[in-house]
Design a protein around this nucleic acid. Structure first.
Lengths: 253, 253
DNA sequence: CGTAGACTTGACCTGCGTCAACGTGTGTGG
DNA sequence: CCACACACGTTGACGCAGGTCAAGTCTACG
């Protein structure tokens, strides 16, 4: 277990290195974080909405949704998280008002105590900066999500979400052409603030127009350019601080 | 100018102290941040949507909206910011994907260079933590905003927004009974993802039911309990890390 | 006292929700 | 290896919240 934990932490470090510069000592500090693994069933809620948790969750396989809930029980998913991401890193610094976590598929995670995260961040300012920046990346995604839900119609909304996930599942800023999204239409509905019924209809329209297919919870992009255009998708908010630009900016410190 | 800048920075520090513990040396480091003042007209866009800025804006008077825009020009406001808050602190660490800033009323701000913020944060880990936490507070507000826009009907949406602003304009976790909101119905519409026309109708309904009045851009809460209940408003996401609980948690570090 | 921006109101339209029924696939137990 | 169940997906008919268009009215300010 301990062996593979380092591998998973390394994946997280690699993610951070896309946007931040960390010395090998700083990287080692992250790799040395204590973890405890957990396995979750599909559809399991593993952090309750108003829970004050004392650890953050690094996803090692599967997909998890962060959500909030109205009293009526209606859910709004605020983010999807995929392996290599921490679903609730923000809780390390502010463990409330964060929403619940739900495993959408069968999922495995590593729990990392807030205490350890904060100690490491306090000791290595560059680690704090990298984690802080990662949280801000998350916030940028949430802003687009809000735009999506507030201002776009059903098909455009879905198209935008699919574009986002394609880039995030992809490598080097290139969209994945097909990937296991593993999400039911109802879970999709929670994310885009529609009914599962209307998601179904919109999905059909997208399929018939030849842009994307979602079959057996596998998403296949047939025509990236048209999908991105239709979904009003500009990947800048995901990618703009990646690559050479990053180096330049960080040398300022 | 320099004299009053310290006063304004002190107001920002006071805000941070609600949720974080800072030594007097750390507080002084924040008070010593360089600033340059600016005055803005009502309705002025002073940070463009895709601008990569090199400073953050501390609001000293007025109200500013953070927004994003579709190609069609439709806006979605993602946050309102009031005096004492930094409208784009997150840009200090990730200066893109942040959206534009718009002065909703006549507004004055202090610009603080990112470079200075990051140097101070790197030097004083507790300052970094406090700023990071402030960003996470912001993110928690944004999450509720997303819920609002995604899952509530027009009147409930407005009621929730008004409750949030009342608490934020208030003191010690008590809602302000009345305050200059200074926002036009069209700007409100951008925030709650409705039409200004529908905002108008919903506002009338809220007024007729005796919960709130918005007149001459001044908001008066007639019946807080009913408004909060109707708006499905729970102030925990704003307040839960304030007060004695905070002390306990921070001693861990 | 005139003008421009904000607010107000009405009539009509439409995207999405609701309700209700019916397929379809996958995994379980006999 | 079949059958049965249960969760998920699909489709249709209909209603309504909120959008759109168009016409005023108010208010602040020159």
């Amino acid at each position: 277990v301990s062996r593979s934990a380092v591998v998973e932490l390394q994946r997280f470090v690699d993610r951070l290195l896309l946007r931040s510069v960390l010395s090998s000592e700083e990287q080692d500090a992250i790799l040395a974080l204590p973890t405890s693994p957990a396995a979750l069933w599909a559809k399991e809620d593993f952090v309750r909405v108003n829970e004050v948790s004392s650890y953050s969750c690094l996803i090692t396989s599967g997909i998890v949704g962060r959500f909030n809930q109205l009293d009526s029980g209606v859910r709004q998913t605020l983010a999807f998280h995929i392996p290599g991401e921490m679903a609730d890193l923000h809780s390390a610094v502010r463990p409330i008002g964060v929403g619940g976590l739900q495993a959408l598929t069968e999922t495995t995670i590593l729990r990392i105590p807030h205490r350890a995260i904060r100690e490491t961040a306090a000791r290595y300012p560059a680690v704090a900066e990298a984690l802080w920046r990662d949280c801000m990346y998350d916030a940028a995604v949430l802003m687009q999500w809000t735009m999506n839900v507030g201002r776009r119609n059903s098909k455009t909304r879905l198209a935008h979400l699919f574009c986002e996930m394609a880039i995030r599942f992809g490598k080097d800023g290139q969209p994945a052409a097909a990937f296991e999204f593993g999400v039911t239409q109802e879970q999709l509905a929670d994310a885009v603030a529609l009914t599962s019924i209307h998601v179904n209809r919109s999905l059909r329209a997208l399929r018939e127009s030849g842009m994307v297919t979602v079959e057996r919870r596998r998403l296949t992009i047939k025509d990236w350019d048209r999908l991105a255009h239709y979904g009003e998708f500009d990947p800048a908010y995901l990618l703009a601080d990646t690559g050479p630009y990053r180096q330049k900016r960080l040398l300022e410190v």
